[in-house]
Every structure is written in C-alpha cells, then in structure tokens.
C-alpha cells in the first residue's frame, strides 16, 4: 500500500515541478525568448541632430506600421554622429515566396524603397517627448542616396539615410535664409558704385548725388539694425560668422560713403554731359539694387524674429505641427 502511495505521490510531485518549470520556460519564451527565433534584419542610420527622447526599444515604423525596435544607440567619436541600429522583424513583411527567401525579399524591397525616396527621421510619439523612427518617403523619388560615413557599415548591413526631423527642417530653413542673405553681393554693389564714382569725378555738384549719399547712409543704418536683430534672435556660432560677414560689408559701404563724400568735395566740374548721365544712371541702378536687397533683408529678418518669438512662446507648436510657422523672405 505504501509502495503504491509512494509512487502516486512521486507522480504528483513530478507533475507539479515539471509543470511549473515548463510554464516558466513557456512564459520566458512568450516574453521575448522568441526574439531569438524570429528573423531580424539590422538597419543602420546616422543622425547629426540630437536624438533626445529615443531609447533602446523605441519603436521603428514603416509608414506607421510597427516593424521593429531600436536595438542600439551609440556615438561615433570620429564625427560625433549618433549611430542608431534598428532590428527590423521580417515577419512584418509578407511576400509570396517561401520562408527561406524572406531575407533576400526584404533586402530587395528595402533597396527599391530607398530609390523611391524612403528615408528615416525622428518623430514624436505624443506630448511626452518620447520619439520613434519613421520610415517614409521624405525624399523625392530617384534622389541620389547620401553615402554612409566612412567605415560605418558592415558589408551585410542595410543603411538608410536620415532626414532631419520637422523641427530640424525649420532650423535649416532659417539657416538657408541667412546663408542667402550672406550671399548678397554687397561687394559687387559697392564695386559698381566705386566704378561709377571714379567716372563721376568732378561731376558731383549735382543734387541727385547728394540724395544718393543720403540713401546709402540710410541703407547702412538699416543693415546695422538688421544685423542687430539677427544676433539678438540667434546666438548660434554660425549666425555670428554670418554677422561678421554682414558687418564687413557694412564697413565697406561706410568706407565707400566716406570716399564718396571726399570725392564730392574735391570734385571738378563735369567734362561731358553724356558721361555724367551714364554715370548717374549707373549710380541710380546700383542704389536701387541695394535698396531692393535691403528691403528683402529686412523682410527676412522680420520673419525670423517672428518665428523665434513664436517658438519661444509655444515650442510645442513645432512638435505637434498644428501651427506651422511660415517662413517668409526668400
């Protein structure tokens, strides 16, 4: 009887222990051990901007469909780029062919998507500041792919270029505007002026010239105010560089004005009327050109100021994108 009871008890104990352990393993499997057995492909990208809000485990989506997670975030010391490795689960991509072909199918699909303009960028998941990586057509089809940084890629790793996030876009737009401002050819203008002035030597009793000088002065003032506004709004180093450029130009304009005044004072009388007319015309054109440019510059600066003000007042508008600030100017 005890023998029977004994073996009965042992069977129950065995069921209990084995059952518990099987359950344990099953739960571990369900909770992610299954990761080991799922087909994955690593996709790598690089961000030059801050990836604040992105963590290991953050979602990776293809046009809104979750297809994987961020598996590693690291910083390349050589160029300060943030390297993001994403594990994309192949089960999310259904193809007609067999299991074994999944991987090559995905690679082909990925390549063709890249050619059609698929890029990745950081997106906000909500108001919490957490981010995910979105794959979407952020570039125009057929646009040339930016090459990955040197030595950043293993042979069989996939690379997707990153495009700046919407917020980054805005900053870039501002940057371009300012770049364009810096490219205004003050030098050419002033060269033209100087050239005209040399031709004009002696003809400067004309009242029109006087008004030109006034206008140049006015323009110089405008430029100064503008540059002050810009440096108030943006403290960035790049801006400063830009400002110094502007200031150089300003100085040149000032010098030019001074030169003009002295020339005027020492001027002889005009030699030929036609020469005078031509020179006078050239000055007028140059002056109009300058006035035009300065108006535009003013507008740009106004727009930038407005944008900066609205950003500092309501940063979330950029995140949520509800109230997209328009960039005027260029």
């Amino acid at each position: 009887m005890t023998q029977h009871h004994d073996s009965n008890q042992k069977i129950k104990l065995g069921i209990f222990v084995v059952g518990g352990l099987v359950l344990f393993v099953a739960i571990l499997f369900f909770l992610g051990m299954s990761d080991i057995f799922t087909n994955k492909e690593t996709v790598r990208t690089f961000f030059s901007e801050s990836v604040q809000g992105l963590t290991v485990g953050s979602a990776v989506k293809y046009r809104g469909v979750p297809i994987g997670n961020v598996s590693k975030i690291s910083i390349r010391v050589t160029d300060k780029l943030v390297q993001i490795d994403m594990a994309v689960e192949l089960k999310h991509f259904v193809s007609g062919s067999e299991q074994g072909q999944q991987r090559s199918d995905f690679k082909r699909f990925f390549q063709s998507e890249l050619e059609q303009g698929m890029r990745c960028r950081l997106e906000y998941t909500g108001v919490t500041g957490m981010r995910y990586i979105d794959f979407d057509y952020f570039a125009t089809p057929g646009q040339t792919l930016t090459e990955p940084p040197d030595g950043a890629l293993d042979p069989d790793e996939l690379y997707i270029p990153a495009v700046p996030s919407p917020f980054r876009d805005i900053l870039k737009a501002i940057g371009t505007s300012l770049d364009r401002i810096s490219r205004i050819r003050f030098e050419e203008i002033s060269d033209g002026l100087e050239r005209s002035l040399t031709e004009l030597s002696g003809l400067l009793a004309d009242p029109a010239l006087k008004s030109t000088i006034d206008r140049i002065n006015e323009a110089a003032e405008n430029l100064e105010i503008g540059s002050r506004t810009v440096s108030r709004v943006f403290g960035e180093e790049r801006m400063n560089r830009l400002m110094s450029l502007l200031e150089d130009d300003l100085e040149k304009v000032n010098k030019l004005t001074e030169h003009l005044i002295t020339e005027t004072q020492n001027a002889k009388l005009p030699e030929s009327t036609s020469a005078f007319r031509a020179a006078s015309n050239a000055i007028t054109i140059g002056q109009d050109e300058l006035a035009n440019t300065l108006t535009k510059l003013n507008q740009t600066l106004d727009a930038l100021t407005e944008l900066a003000d609205s950003l500092s007042a309501d940063p979330s508008s950029v995140i949520s994108g509800k109230k997209k600030p328009q960039i005027k100017g260029e």
Binding site: V17, G19, G20, L21, F24
Partner: peptide, 13 residues
C-alpha cells in the same frame, strides 16, 4: 524554496 517559485509562476498565470 522549490515550491514557492513554482507556485508563484502558476499564480501569475
């Protein structure tokens, strides 16, 4: 020590 963790696993489920 053997049964409590097992029971906990069962209990969790």
């Amino acid at each position: 020590l053997l049964s409590m963790p097992l029971l906990t696993i069962f209990g969790n489920v």
